[in-house]
Each structure stands twice: as structure tokens, then as C-alpha cells.
Simulated assay, not measured.
Amino acid sequence: MNLFPAVPIPPQMKKPASYGRELAFDFDRNTFLYVDGRPKIVEGIAALQIWIEKTLRTARYRYPIYRFSYGCELADVIGLDLPTLVLEAEIPRLIREALVYDDRIADVGDFIVERDGDRLRAEFTVTTTLGDRFRQEVKGLV
């Protein structure tokens, strides 16, 4: 049973040519990765996965450096004492809304959400506009 209606994802206006590049980041140690003293750069799906995790770890509307479409509103609901049924519906919706604005992502689904107090672990499937599918896990969200 879902408390919230499914909202269709708007059709993508144009497909990206690639997934881009990102600086490699170790989210467990909260540090950038280096190779021979230089920042490690990743491309392809690995770059998209880093962007996804950074997006979900950034509170939307909190930092003026980011556009309002960047970030996630998870921090607004994690600390609340909401019924489990509400959280099970709301958390996937917030994650999905945070990610589908990017023109590389076509859909996000198949969620597994585990909550431990004020911490959250989410696992989900990402379908890209280039036709790739992969599982993404994000731990330690607040």
C-alpha cells in the first residue's frame, strides 16, 4: 500500500552523450582519493554513482552555492518520529525526486530502505537514459 501516488517522470528532452567525470571520493572516510599525489578522476557509471551519493548527502535548499534542484530533503524526515509506513513511502519518493532531475537518469526504483535511529541505508536500482541499469547503495544518510 502506497500513501503517495506515483508521479510520472517527465520525458527527457535530450540524452547525455556520456556520464561525465567526477573526483573519486571515499564516503566512509570522508576524503578524496589520490593517485601519485594527484586527485583520482573516475568516468562512466562510477562518476554517476559518486554524483548520486553526493546529491543524496547534500541537504536541498541549505547551501546557496547549489541550485534548488540539487540535493535531497531526507534530513527533513529522518529525525522525525514518523510511523514506519509513512517513512517507507516517503524516503523512496524523496530519493527519486532528488535524482530524476538529472538528464542522465531515466528512473529510480526497487528500493530497500533500512533505518537505524537517525541513520539511513538505502539501496535502489538506477536506470540511465543511456540504457544502463545498476544497483546503488548509500549508507549513513542523515
Score class of each variant (00 low, 15 high):
Asp116Phe: 07
Ala6Asn: 14
Thr125Cys: 10
Gly44Asn: 00
Gln136Leu: 02
Ile52Leu: 02
Thr129Glu: 07
Arg62Gly: 00
Lys40Ser: 12
Glu123Ser: 15
Arg29Pro: 08
Ser69Gln: 11
Asp116Val: 06
Val108Lys: 02
Ile9Glu: 09
Val35Ile: 11
Arg60Val: 08
Tyr70Ile: 10
Phe4Asp: 09
Thr84Glu: 15
Phe68Pro: 15
Thr55Ile: 04
Asp36Ile: 01
Thr128Lys: 06
Thr84Lys: 14
Ala6Asp: 15
Ile95Lys: 02
Trp51Leu: 11
Glu22Gly: 04
Asp28Trp: 01
Ile105Glu: 05
Leu56Ile: 01
Arg135Phe: 07
Lys15Asp: 03
Gly44Pro: 00
Asp116His: 10
Gly79Ile: 06
Lys40Val: 08
Leu87Ile: 03
Gln136Gly: 01
Val138Ala: 11
Arg96Lys: 15
Val86Pro: 09
Leu3Met: 12
Arg93Gly: 06
Ala106Gly: 05
Ile45Tyr: 00
Lys139Trp: 04
Ala89Glu: 15
Asp107Lys: 07
Lys14Pro: 00
Arg67Cys: 10
Thr127Leu: 12
Ser69Val: 10
Val42Tyr: 05
Asp76Trp: 04
Trp51Gly: 05
Gly44Ser: 01
Thr55Gly: 03
Pro10Gln: 07
Pro92Trp: 04
Ala122Met: 02
Ile65Asn: 05
Thr58Tyr: 01
